[in-house]
Amino acid sequence: MQIVLAILVGGAFGFVLDRIGATNPNVITGMLTLRRLRLMKTILLAIGTGSILMFGGQMLGLVEVGHMSVKAAYIGVFIGGLLLGAGWAASGFCPGTGVCAAATGRRDALFFIAGGLLGAAAYMATYPAWKASGLLADIAGGKVTLGTVPGSAYAGIWAVSGDLLGIVLGLVFVLVAFVLPEGIGGGHVQEMPAE
């Protein structure tokens, strides 16, 4: 059953990533240079929509709170984010969209995946040094959510209802998605070359 769900949800995710332009390095780069922000609007709306549905569903008892999976906070999250950001901007791919872009026939995405496999292997080899450095040690409680979600395995930073805060933040994401302009100056590359 899990495998069937993996095929259905994974397939839908890949399909939608392609349809919103996320498999296209022109679109990703346009977003990261702030010239074309349509994808940013899409992603913000998606995070907001997902958040409202998930926390709303949890409040109504329709969504299993135990399905939440919160990752730990540590200094390495920030350093890793910086590294990922630099490579993301240079290549126009992130791990998921790189795999999807390769499937659409983009040759550079195959090189991205090859580099990614080597990069992951390099991390596997250097993991003990990171571990010893203390940069992987939990900060601010590690696996925490901003509010306190009833019935979840994770602590909250603030005592406010994590469900309500999740819905409020979800609405903020949606609001920002609508307020954000479609682009900030410049740019002439077509997002989807005509053919």
């Binding site: 990752k71 890793g80 580099g115 990069g119 992951a120």
Partner: peptide, 18 residues
């Protein structure tokens, strides 16, 4: 793209996600 992929996945694993 290859170098970018290397840095992206190294960073993602250090961060524990992408």
């Amino acid at each position: 793209a290859f170098a970018g992929g290397f840095v992206v996945l190294y960073g993602a694993r250090l961060a524990g996600g992408c």
